[in-house]
């Protein structure tokens, strides 16, 4: 199981489908744009369930906490949204995108 949980992006999307089919509320977060030094490339996924369990990553662990929090709202209201994190952003300092890059993350509910 350890290897599966480490998960390349491919496995993460398979897991997302399995979670949804098991009746869990699921959101998929995808890195859609990056500027400067961003730890994870465009197309990277983070999959979140309604209880805050998550797999994958959209940064090197810097902003996952904030993305999970927003993902819970997306699961609740079904409205997709785009999040932006960067050093110019007060929130980013708080959640710590310490690499100095900026990223855009699209978060959508799996229906």
């Amino acid at each position: 199981m350890a290897a599966a949980e480490l998960a390349v992006d491919d496995d993460i999307l398979v897991k997302a489908a399995q979670w949804r089919e098991a009746g869990r509320g699921v959101a998929i977060a995808t890195v859609t744009e990056t500027w400067g030094s961003a730890p994870r490339p465009v197309g990277s996924h983070l999959v979140i369930d309604e209880e805050g369990h998550f797999l994958g990553s959209v940064s090197g662990g810097c902003v996952e906490g904030a993305v999970v929090t927003d993902a819970l709202d997306v699961i609740a209201d079904g409205k997709a949204r785009t999040l932006e994190f960067g050093v110019a952003d007060e929130t980013a300092w708080q959640v710590g995108l310490s690499c100095g890059g900026r990223i855009k993350v699209f978060v959508e509910r799996l229906d």
Partner: peptide, 14 residues
């Protein structure tokens, strides 16, 4: 994303 789209995507990759 619709679950059926995601399942098709996963199947194509497999």
């Amino acid at each position: 994303m619709r679950l059926d789209l995601l399942k098709t995507l996963n199947a194509e990759r497999a």
